[in-house]
C-alpha cells in the first residue's frame, strides 16, 4: 500500500479536509452512463483515443499510465 494512503489514515484532519474537487473529478471521470463508441480526451495536447464497448479512459490516473507506457515504448524504439 502506498505511503500516501497511510499518511491519509493517520491524519486527524481527514474528516475536515476539503476533498470536493477530488470527489467531483471522481464522479465525472469514473462514473455515469457510458455509451459504446469512441471517446477522445486530450491530455497535455496528446489525444488519447479509446474505442470499444466498455473500454475508455476511466480516470486521469489511467490516462497518465497510458502516457507513461507510450513514453516507455517510444524510448524502446
Amino acid at each position: 500500500m502506498s505511503s500516501s494512503f497511510d499518511q491519509i489514515i493517520v491524519s486527524e484532519e481527514w474528516e475536515n479536509t476539503d476533498f470536493s474537487l477530488l470527489e467531483t473529478l471522481d464522479h465525472v471521470l469514473n462514473r455515469g452512463l457510458v455509451i459504446a463508441g469512441e471517446i477522445t480526451i486530450s491530455v497535455a495536447d496528446i489525444d488519447l483515443i479509446f474505442v470499444g464497448l466498455n473500454v475508455m479512459v476511466s480516470s486521469v490516473e489511467t490516462a497518465q499510465e497510458v502516457l507513461r507506457r507510450r513514453q516507455m515504448e517510444t524510448k524502446a524504439e
Binding site: 464522479h27 465525472v28 471521470l29 469514473n30 462514473r31 455515469g32 452512463l33 457510458v34 455509451i35 459504446a36 463508441g37 471517446i39 477522445t40 480526451i41 475508455m56 479512459v57
Partner: peptide
C-alpha cells in the same frame, strides 16, 4: 442519468443509443 465526462458523439449515434 449523468453521462461520463468526455462523451462526444454524433447526434445520430446519440439518438440510436
Amino acid at each position: 442519468l449523468p453521462f461520463r465526462f468526455g462523451t462526444i458523439i454524433s447526434e445520430q449515434q446519440l439518438r440510436h443509443y
